[in-house]
Computed example of a mutant assay.
Amino acid sequence: MAESKVAKVGRKKPETHLGMVRRARRINRELAELYPYAHPELDFDGPFQLLVATVLSAQTTDLRVNQTTPALFAKYPTPEDLAAAVPEELEQVIRPTGFFRAKAKSLIGLSIALRDRFGGEVPRGLEDLVTLPGVGRKTANVVIGNAFGGAGITVDTHFGRLARRFGWTAEEDPEKVEADVMAIFPKSEWTMLSHRVVFHGRRVCHARKPACGACPIAPLCPSYGVGETDPEQARKLLKYELAGQPGQRLRPPADFPGEAAARAELAAGHPLPDTDPQALPPAKAAKAEAPAKTAKAEAAAKETS
């Protein structure tokens, strides 16, 4: 029996590889317009600080790392200093980032390697970077792309999730995801593509409840509908600067829309979102707790007046 015309009309043709590539590159252009200020969300000064911060960022938020690294780099400003660190003392400094024993071991190990094998300097090549303890391709690409101005695709949990939702890959293994995406985009786009995709994953295309109804690239996304599609409800799911809130950096770039919000929060003495006073150095913890104590004192005064 011949297929009905309705069936033929309703059936969508499979996307060709060329069609996927064109759609992927259009998504990148759309993300570039949406996030012209996309940037690494770790605070750092120089390759060594970025390397250390990226190692610390495993299994925690960039904000938590940014709250921890000022005290860390004040105590251990150079690879030589960190190489000579007492493990137990280092563990206490980085404890808020989680998995602090394993991370302390990696930081001391990579610092010893930098001191003994690379003259105290962070190497520029991927092959050398991945020989450092605790450094895989993701961390190496972060350093190459953001400290040295090279090209690298950073496949973290956000990038991998969105690459699959966008239909760029079906792979789960980060290295295979990286290889698939590298084949789609020109090398000159790799670093900024990584920032844009991660930004979108953190702000709109969340793991559990993506804001599909508020997503500007929804018409290009084959996974539209896996999250909230009602525009009003979806807008409530937006995060960071898209919701008028600070981002994850304590020292954001001047062109970041959330920079003003971050300044206002800090000027008012309010800790940034997810800030745990116990995760901060003592001086900052006291400052973060001060507004709460003041508010309690004012409330008590009103009750007795």
Rank of each mutant, 00 (worst) to 15 (best):
L90Q: 07
L114G: 07
S106Y: 14
E15N: 00
E89N: 09
T16Y: 08
A85P: 09
G98P: 02
L42H: 01
D45F: 10
F99P: 01
L107I: 05
R64H: 01
A102K: 11
E121F: 04
T16M: 08
P70E: 13
E33T: 12
S57D: 04
K13V: 11
L110F: 06
V55D: 02
R22I: 10
A38S: 15
A71G: 07
P123R: 01
L82C: 10
R115T: 15
F100K: 09
A58G: 11
D116N: 13
L126Y: 10
L72D: 03
P133T: 11
E91P: 03
T68K: 01
V93S: 05
A84R: 15
T60G: 08
E33F: 08
G136D: 07
A24Y: 04
A102V: 10
Q92R: 15
Y35L: 09
L90C: 09
Q67P: 02
P36L: 12
P36M: 12
L56H: 03
F100D: 09
L114S: 08
H17D: 14
K13W: 05
P14N: 09
R137N: 04
K13G: 01
A32S: 14
G134F: 08
A74C: 11
K103R: 10
Y37N: 08
S57E: 05
P87A: 13
V130F: 11
A74V: 10
S111A: 11
T60M: 09
V21R: 11
E41R: 12
L114N: 03
T54C: 10
L31I: 06
D45M: 06
K103Y: 04
R22S: 11
F118C: 08
E41N: 13
E30F: 02
L31C: 05
